[in-house]
């Protein structure tokens, strides 16, 4: 391990920093020690685990696309708002981050459920969201999009507005400024925010369970499968957790490598 030479970090800072790392790393090491490694291949070969894995990847891909297409515009608009409006919109946008997942699921259920505030009208048209894969995607997007919004908005607020002003005075239309100046400036933040949103969706559990239910191949994602596995065998649940952690780690590291290469 080495620190970059131009960063003068006070030595004492290493003590709490190490403690922080240990807080997260020690339980992970504990997991690595306890996990029945030999069981992992056999577990992964079961239809239940494979269905859960594919469902998780599919739904997380869908919810990340949804987070990006809806969350990115929200972040841009939010970064331009000032005063009370900014506070209000930001509070609403990030509220799912502080909601307990079960509450998020309940909120979705009483809104989009069959007898929900909106759901009852959708139901009349034959659209039933509950217990479908779509419900999983909605739950994942609900809890993960705020991470993308807050990351990108923060980056946008700290960019130099002068560049955009110059582009506009040179005759660029707002859409061109957005596409050619604003978004490229916060490219790394968009990538980072998307990654965090994906990772959050991958780990989503409570809202999915409450709103979408749990059925193999339809709504039972990897975290739900782990939860169910634990009912019969904690070791098998741990083995499956390793798969989830490995997947999440790869997904978190990949964008870092991409940005490093482009620099």
């Amino acid at each position: 391990m080495s620190l970059a030479p131009d960063t003068a970090v006070p030595r004492w800072l290493l003590v709490p920093a190490s403690a922080a790392l240990a807080l997260v790393a020690v339980p992970l090491i504990g997991l690595m020690v306890r996990v029945p490694w030999a069981q992992i291949p056999r577990l992964l070969a079961t239809p239940a685990a494979q269905d859960a894995l594919w469902l998780s990847l599919r739904t997380c891909a869908a919810s990340t696309v949804l987070s990006l297409t809806l969350g990115l515009p929200l972040a841009v608009v939010l970064s331009r708002l000032t005063g009370h409006w900014a506070v209000m919109v930001r509070t609403i946008s990030v509220l799912p981050m502080v909601l307990p997942p079960v509450v998020a699921g309940l909120v979705l259920l009483i809104t989009l459920g069959r007898r929900g505030v909106l759901g009852q009208y959708l139901s009349v048209w034959g659209v039933d969201i509950g217990f479908t894969t779509a419900a999983v995607v909605i739950a994942q997007t609900f809890v993960s999009m705020p991470y993308l919004v807050i990351t990108v908005e923060g980056a946008l607020r700290s960019t130099d507005r002068a560049l955009e002003v110059v582009a506009a005075t040179l005759g660029a239309r707002p859409t061109t400024v957005l596409r050619r100046v604003t978004l490229p400036l916060v490219g790394p933040a968009i990538l980072g925010g998307t990654t965090v949103a994906f990772a959050r969706a991958l780990g989503e559990f409570g809202a999915t369970l409450t709103f979408a239910g749990s059925l193999q191949g339809t709504t039972r994602t990897l975290p739900l499968q782990i939860y169910l596995q634990r009912e019969t065998d904690t070791n098998q649940a741990l083995a499956l957790s390793v798969v989830l952690i490995a997947l999440a780690s790869v997904l978190m590291v990949a964008p870092t490598l991409v940005t490093r290469r482009s620099r």
Binding site: L109, I110, G113, R114, R115, G130, F131, L209, T210, A212, G213, S214, L215, Q216, T219, R220, Y227, L228, E231
Partner: peptide, 18 residues
């Protein structure tokens, strides 16, 4: 349509009309 991990969730699904 769903196989829940605890019975409370089954009750919840029925009482909410889901």
């Amino acid at each position: 349509v769903s196989q829940t991990t605890n019975v409370t969730d089954v009750v919840g699904a029925v009482t909410t009309g889901e």
